[in-house]
Design a protein around this nucleic acid. Structure first.
Lengths: 339, 339
DNA sequence: GTGAAAGCGCTAACAA
DNA sequence: TTGTTAGCGCTTTCAC
C-alpha cells in the first residue's frame, strides 16, 4: 500500500509561498491574514488532504480535544447507551473520547486516570462507581463531571443524575396503586448511592401508604448476585420459603427480568398474581413477554446536561459554581407487568 | 483544587543531576546507564509522581500507544462485548483504545479514519460494516484488522471472523434434526457478508437434506427492520398470511427473540409447534423464557486472534503474509426452543 | 497582513 | 556510561 507521506504545515507554507505562521492562522481562523492568502492556503490544504498532527498541537497547547469516559462496564446496555450518546455529542463538537472500562476495579480506575492525564485529555466524565474520584492521580486541573455517581464532598467534581429517590418512590407507588400489599424489593446491597436512594424511596412510599415494612422482602444482593441470575434465584428462594408477596420492585430492568422469568418458571401469573416494576427502561423491559413496567431515566437529558456542562467547563465558560449538582426527573412507564 | 504542576523530564534530570538523555534512557530502559543512576532517577520519578507527556512522545516517535476501534453501534450487546474484550486486551498491553461509533454511517466512518490518522493511532480494528475500508483517508501505513468484515480484495487489511456459513448450516441442520420441515429464515437483506454467508449455509442445509426451498419463507428485512421489532412483525405477517412453518432460523439473537415473542403473542407454542434458533449467543438467548437455542460465536477466540494479530503487526513482528484471513469455528448451543 | 523564531517534552544520533 | 543537541509539527509572541 503506497501512502502519501503526511504533509506538514511547513510544506503547506512552502507550497503556498507564505510562512508557517500564516498557515497556522488560516487553519485556526485566528485572523490577520488576507482573503487571498486564506484561499491560497485552503486550496493547497484540500489538494493535499492535509490533516493536523494532533500530537504536535496537543504538545503545544496542552489541549487534546479528547475526553475520557470512565464507565464500569460497556457491556451493559444501560452504560453503553449513555456511552453512545456521549460519544455522539462530542463527535459533533470535534472531540474524541477514550472509553475506559473499569470493570468495577479501583486499581484499573486509578491506572486510567493516570493514563488519561498523560494523554492530556481536556476533561473526564465518570459514570457510576465509587464515590471517591482518584483525582489526585491527575497532574492537571481538568474538569470532571459525574453521572449517577455522587462525588465526595471535598471533590470539586460536578454531577448529574436522575432522581433515584423519586424513582424508587414512584415505582413503589405504582405497585401500591395497582393493589399490591406485600411489595418486595430486589436491589444491590452495596451502598452505591443510586441503589440506596431507590431503596429509600421504596421505604418512604410504603410508609406514606401505611404499608408494613418487612425486612424479609428486602432482597439486597451482593455485587456478583445483583444481576438477572441472582434476582431469579432470590425470587425462587422467596417462593420456596413461602413468604407471601404480590409485587416486586426490582431496581434495574435486568433484575426485573430475572424476577419475571423466575415467576414464570414457577407458574406464577404476571401481572395477575404478582406485579413487577423495574428501573432504567432498557430494551428488555419493552420487549419481554409480558412487557415490564419500569422507571424511565431520561438518557438524552442526562447526557446532554453532563456533556454540555463538561464542554462549558473545558472552554472556561462561566458556570454558576454554587450549582454543582443536577437532578433530573424520572417517569413511570406502565406496561403489562403492572396492568 | 491545587495541582502539582506536571513535572518534565528536564526537571527530573536537574533533580537527579544527570542529563535528559539519561533520564529518557532509564524511563525507556534503553540501556547504557549505571544501576546507581537508574536508582537515583527512579526515586525522583516516584517521588514527584512523574508521568510522561504522551503528546511529546507521540510527536517524537510517531507512535501513540493507541488504537482505534471502529464499531457500528456500541449500544448493541454483541458489539459491546467485543469492544470490552478488545479494550481489556489492549489495556494489559498498555495501549488505549479510541472507540468510534459509526452508526452505520459511511461519512462518519471516513471522518473517524481521518481523526484516528491525525491522532497517530498505531493500528485500527474494524468490526462489521461495509466492505470498503476508507484506508485512503489514512496518511500513514498502519495495520488494519477486521472482525466480521471481509475487506475488498485489493485492501491489505487482515480479517478474522467466525464461520458464518457453517453457522447457518448448523443452525438449519439443528432444526431439521429436531423434525422441522418448513424452515423460515429471518435475516437482513443487505449483502453484508456475514448475513449472506449465514443465508448460504441455510440454503445448503435445506438442499443437503432434500427439503424444498421456499422463497416465501426467506424473510429478508431492511436495515431498519432487521431487529427485534421487525422480526416480530415479519412473523406476525407470516402467520396472518397462513404460510405454514414449523421452524425459524433467525440470524441473530435479537431477531430470534422477536420471533419468539411474536409467536407467544399469537399463542403458538415454542418449541412444540414451532422451533427457533438464533445466532451469536448473547445474554437474551440464555435468559428468555423459553430459552433460545443459538449458534455461539467464540468471542474470546475472535478478539484474541484479532488483537494479537494487530499487536504483532504494530510491532513489526513477522506475519505470514499469505495468511490474511482467519476463520474460527462456531458451535450449536441447544436450549429449550429446539428441544 | 505577514514572517522569524522560540519552545512545548521527548527521543536518538552523535560525541565524548 | 553519560551528555549535547537537533528536531518531531505546531502555536504564538514580537517585530516589521
Amino acid at each position: 500500500m503506497v501512502k502519501k507521506k503526511n504533509i506538514s504545515i511547513k510544506e503547506i507554507a512552502k507550497l503556498a509561498d507564505v510562512s508557517v505562521a500564516t498557515v497556522s492562522r488560516v487553519i485556526n481562523n485566528n485572523g490577520r491574514f488576507s482573503d487571498k492568502t486564506k484561499e491560497k492556503v485552503e486550496t493547497i490544504i484540500k489538494e493535499y488532504g492535509y490533516t493536523a498532527n494532533i500530537a504536535a498541537k496537543s504538545l503545544r497547547t496542552s489541549k487534546s480535544k479528547t475526553i475520557g469516559l470512565i464507565v464500569p462496564n460497556i457491556d451493559n446496555e444501560w452504560f453503553s447507551q449513555l456511552a453512545l450518546d456521549i460519544e455522539n455529542y462530542f463527535f459533533k463538537h470535534n472531540y474524541s473520547v477514550f472509553i475506559c472500562n473499569t470493570s468495577q476495579n479501583e486499581e484499573k480506575e486509578v491506572a486510567y486516570f493516570k493514563s488519561l492525564d498523560s494523554k492530556l485529555v481536556d476533561g473526564i466524565i465518570c459514570i457510576s462507581g465509587i464515590e471517591t474520584i482518584p483525582s489526585d492521580s491527575l497532574t492537571r486541573d481538568i474538569p470532571i463531571v459525574c453521572i449517577d455517581r455522587k462525588p465526595k464532598d471535598h471533590s470539586n467534581a460536578y454531577y448529574v443524575e436522575s432522581n433515584h429517590y423519586l424513582g424508587g418512590y414512584l415505582a413503589t407507588e405504582e405497585l401500591i396503586q395497582q393493589g399490591c400489599k406485600n411489595i418486595a424489593i430486589v436491589s444491590r446491597n452495596k451502598s452505591l448511592s443510586v441503589n440506596k436512594q431507590r431503596l429509600m424511596g421504596y421505604r418512604q412510599a410504603l410508609k406514606d401508604y401505611q404499608l408494613q415494612e418487612n425486612k424479609q422482602l428486602e432482597l439486597l444482593l451482593d455485587i456478583e448476585q445483583a444481576n438477572y441470575e441472582g434476582a431469579k434465584e432470590a425470587i425462587n428462594q422467596l417462593i420456596k420459603n413461602n413468604i407471601p408477596f404480590d409485587g416486586v420492585f426490582a431496581t434495574n430492568d435486568w433484575r426485573a427480568y430475572g424476577v419475571l422469568v423466575g415467576l414464570l418458571e414457577n407458574n406464577v401469573k404476571v401481572p395477575d398474581e404478582v406485579k413487577i416494576i423495574g428501573f432504567d427502561d432498557i430494551f428488555i423491559s419493552a420487549s419481554s413477554h409480558p412487557s415490564l413496567s419500569t422507571i424511565k431515566q431520561n438518557i438524552p437529558a442526562l447526557t446532554k446536561t453532563a456533556c454540555s456542562l463538561l464542554l462549558d467547563l473545558m472552554n472556561d465558560i462561566a458556570i454558576n459554581d454554587e450549582k454543582k449538582q443536577f437532578i433530573l426527573p424520572v417517569e413511570v412507564i406502565r406496561r403489562d407487568s403492572t396492568s
